[in-house]
Design a protein around this nucleic acid. Structure first.
Length: 458
RNA sequence: GGCUGGGUAGCAGAAUGGUUAUGCAGCGGCCUGCAAAGCCGUGUAUGCCGGUUCGAUUCCGGCCCCAGCCUCCA
């Protein structure tokens, strides 16, 4: 039985799909005004693993939205003197490239705010009709927070505490400083859509309520996102959605942990963020994925060169184990598979699941790579790794990739042949000189017991 | 200040009321012409103070420290 930690109840709960056999999942995606950073990579990869695992036993509908209209986008477009749609198009494309590079398949639906204005406007209308929202003289429409009884349940905040907080500012025309915008009246040069309340654009939170409901229905299984979305974004989504529909909105709320740099959250406002591209220029995408999965998805994760290098070494062990084995389905390793699945069933405990992969690797080495036992274990290792989006390449493709200096393969092969000749004639000084030369150029040699030499890049 | 979550060996990182995490690094051995890889063996830990218990790293209370949120942020 798969259990998932629910932010709302702060306990692990069994996943029981509302519709038998079908899990509906919505994740808050990117606001496209800049390149994606490692925090975004964590959301992509964490939920990719969630979805891969869910798909192994349910039908899944996975929705991840794109916010393509908002204050920051407008500001950035103005700053660059560029039309908004050109700017957002460019960053959407960049995001898709990053996603592909990370080996994350696209979600089933990727709704964009600007393509869902009718649904957004309709929902705001409903909220006004039901007394949960009001139009201020400025033309802005606000959500009346105190009208929603459950406000603060997700983030553990009380309206009184929030009100006492010094940092909440009151906006023009708000009844209460905590009220938040559903619709923002357009200023002269801003993009605007017509609405019953005048020209304007949607507030940030309402788009996710409207789009998730449009794509998945008024009540669905899982809603996820980054750690800083819990409040106010998701809190506001609950308030909007449940007030509008009168139904429970979401059963399970999932939030991944932050990516830190130097023990501090990587964020745009702090300016300490590293883009996915920055990281991929230095490390293999699968190494980055391994690094992300080495910690539990809810824990904070500290990015460092050291950690990434260690991740590469670990992944190398797994791939090196698979090299030279022909995987073949068999009985061996059923217990390992069982442990792997139990780990994943416990709120996607990927660090524990990975440890099972290493146990499997150990067994493969022990049983001898050419044994039937090893073939069966390798088959499981490969398949279970696949559930995490790992070990999908031919081992040599991983082991021989990268390296600071790219010595052509033919040259490497030539030197190895030369060395083999020297070894055959027991001219060890010569053969060692070649090995050292290759070593200096980032190539590590491994003589295989029955003859022949394997190589990989450092 | 309020609300969450956390403090585990050299590092990373799981788990657990009494018994091996795992990976990297270290040490000894085997294997190898020598290496590399692998195998065998091995050391190092549960922030502090109380309480519950036959027994607590694990449960409870207090304290200290860290991170996140409370403002746009994944």
């Amino acid at each position: 039985m798969l259990k998932i930690y629910n932010t709302l109840t702060r306990t692990k709960e069994p996943l029981v799909p509302i519709e038998t056999g079908h899990v509906r999942l919505y994740v808050c995606g990117m606001t496209v005004y800049d390149l994606c950073h490692l925090g975004h990579a964590r959301v992509m990869v964490a939920f990719d693993v969630v979805v891969r695992y869910l798909r192994s036993r349910f039908r899944v509908t996975y929705v991840r939205n794109i916010t393509d209209i908002d204050d920051k986008i407008i500001a950035r477009a103005l700053e660059r003197g560029e039309p908004i749609d050109v700017l957002t198009r460019r960053y959407i494309d960049a995001m898709h490239e990053d996603e592909r590079a990370l080996g994350v398949p696209p979600p089933d639906h990727e709704p964009r705010a600007t393509a869902h204005l009718p649904a957004i406007i309709a929902m705001i209308g409903t909220l006004i009709d039901k007394g949960y929202a009001y139009r201020a003289d400025s033309g802005d429409v606000y959500y009346r927070v105190r009208a929603f009884a459950g406000y603060g349940a997700l983030s553990g905040k009380s309206i009184d505490d929030l009100r006492a907080g010094a940092r909440v500012q009151s906006g023009e025309g708000k009844e209460d400083p905590l009220d938040f915008a559903l619709w923002k009246a357009a200023k002269p040069e801003e993009p605007a859509w017509s609405s019953p309340w005048g020209k304007g654009r949607p507030g940030w939170h309402i788009e996710c309520s409207a789009m998730s409901i449009e794509c998945l229905g008024t009540h669905f299984d899982i809603h996820g996102g980054g750690p800083d979305l819990k409040f106010p974004h998701h809190e506001n989504e609950i308030a909007q959605s449940e007030a509008a529909t009168g139904e429970r909105f979401v059963n399970l709320w999932m939030h991944n942990g932050p990516v830190d740099v130097d023990r501090q959250k990587m964020s745009k406002s702090l300016g300490n963020f590293l883009t996915i591209r920055d990281a991929l220029a230095r490390y293999d995408a699968e190494t980055l994925r391994y690094f992300l999965l080495q910690s539990h998805y809810r824990s904070p994760l500290d990015y460092s060169e050291k950690a990434l290098t260690a991740a590469k070494t670990s992944l190398t062990r797994l791939y090196a184990t698979l090299e030279g084995v022909t995987p073949m389905a068999g009985a061996a390793g059923a217990d390992h598979e069982q442990r792997f699945l139990e780990s994943m069933d416990d709120d996607f405990n990927t660090p524990l699941a990975l440890s099972v992969l290493f146990d499997l690797a150990h067994e493969i080495h022990k049983s001898g790579k050419d044994s039937a036992q090893a073939a069966a274990l390798a088959f499981r290792l490969h398949r279970l790794g696949g559930l995490l989006g790992l070990l999908g390449r031919p081992p040599a493709a991983f082991l021989r990739s990268g390296g600071a200096e790219v010595l052509p393969e033919v040259e490497i092969e030539r030197l190895i042949a030369e060395r083999d000749l020297a070894r055959g004639e027991r001219r060890f000084a010569d053969s060692d000189r070649i090995r050292e030369e290759l070593g200096r150029r980032g190539v590590i040699l491994e003589d295989v017991a029955g003859g022949g030499t394997r190589w990989r890049r450092r």
